[in-house]
């Protein structure tokens, strides 16, 4: 590469480079710089004079000891099954529902109405899980809950919702989708809007039905988006949404077999010891597995369809 070329490149792209700068700086300072902190996962962290870095250096190496608690208990199987299982269901149902809703919103002829729907679907996304947990409680409370009142008025018996694990997988999937649907629909709605309208026009001229248009034009255009978002969410498959699993079941003990996930388990486990090493170990474990899974999924996607892979 010639020198003049280099200069030219920088001059030409200067505004773009400046635009990248804040984001890149943020990424470096908050995502890459703290990364060397993962060594804490292999240390018995104690405080030493001279600040965090010196504490980190002086703390004793303990190898993989901090990871043991995740796998040694009998609950290890349950929490990993719950975490991965729920996340898979969330990815599948979430994708199907948000694609379906995006198409439906797009097909609505009265744009004002579709905006109203879109906004009201978006609203739950901004609620904190603590507030959502009270919404759910209003439905499921034993004595005054809406559902139990309905059951009573139909002449059926009340149910103690917070002690019956069998209902909770469904409740959690429902609540999670209700909260996140509006947000993920926006992605797909944006992707649909960018599809060239002439496709639809020529399809209509050829006599394609609405269903055929969706099947042969919209969905293929959405495919890259679906694949990218799915690969990215598979990267977080070992990390559960703490707020959902901690607040919504109101920490009810009998529900633990279906609501305890890695994040809530670790939170409860470290309440007494407050061990930074063990919580770092968990985070590192989740990140490494997530990274491997992203690589694997991407590899598989690449094998099947080269253009759809992210890298």
């Amino acid at each position: 590469m010639k020198k003049s070329n280099k200069k030219h490149f920088i001059r030409k792209n200067c505004p773009l480079l400046l635009m990248v700068l804040p984001g890149a700086a943020w990424l470096l300072i908050f995502k890459y710089l703290p990364m060397f902190g993962v060594v804490i996962a292999f240390k018995d962290f104690r405080y030493y004079p001279g600040g965090f870095i010196s504490s980190m250096i002086h703390s004793e190496w303990v190898g993989f000891k901090n990871f043991e608690f995740l796998f040694s208990s009998n609950d290890a199987y349950i929490i990993i099954r719950n975490t991965v299982g729920y996340n898979l269901v969330f990815i599948i149902t979430g994708t199907i529902l948000s694609v379906a809703f995006a198409i439906m919103l797009n097909e609505m002829t009265r744009k004002k109405l579709s905006k109203i729907f879109q906004t009201s679907m978006f609203f739950p996304y901004f609620l904190s899980w603590v507030i959502v947990s009270y919404f759910v409680y209003a439905y499921l409370s034993s004595d005054k809950g809406i559902i139990n009142q309905m059951l009573l008025s139909l002449g059926m018996d009340k149910t103690s919702w917070y002690t019956q694990p069998k209902f909770w997988p469904m409740i959690l999937v429902l609540v999670n989708n209700w909260k996140h649907l509006g947000y993920s629909t926006v992605y797909y709605l944006a992707a649909i809007c960018s599809v060239d309208k002439t496709y639809y026009e020529s399809a209509m001229l050829d006599g394609a039905t609405k269903w055929q248009q969706i099947k042969y034009i919209t969905l293929p255009h959405l495919k890259p988006m679906i694949i990218t978002l799915t690969i990215l969410s598979i990267g977080r498959i070992f990390s559960a949404d703490f707020g959902l699993f901690y607040n919504v079941p109101k920490q009810s003990g009998p529900l633990f077999p279906v609501t305890n996930v890695i994040d809530t388990y670790v939170y409860r486990a470290l309440m007494y010891s407050g061990d930074i090493g063990m919580s770092t170990a968990t985070g590192l474990f989740q990140a490494v597995i997530g990274f491997l899974l992203i690589m694997l999924t991407n590899y598989i996607v690449k094998k099947i369809d080269k253009d759809s892979a992210i890298f």
């Binding site: 609950d75 009998p254 305890n260 409860r268 486990a269 470290l270 007494y272 010891s273 063990m278």
Partner: peptide, 15 residues
């Protein structure tokens, strides 16, 4: 540490 982590979780579950 590992045992305490597990016992704390069980205690929360049953008590």
């Amino acid at each position: 540490k590992s045992e305490m982590a597990a016992v704390t979780n069980v205690a929360k579950e049953v008590s």
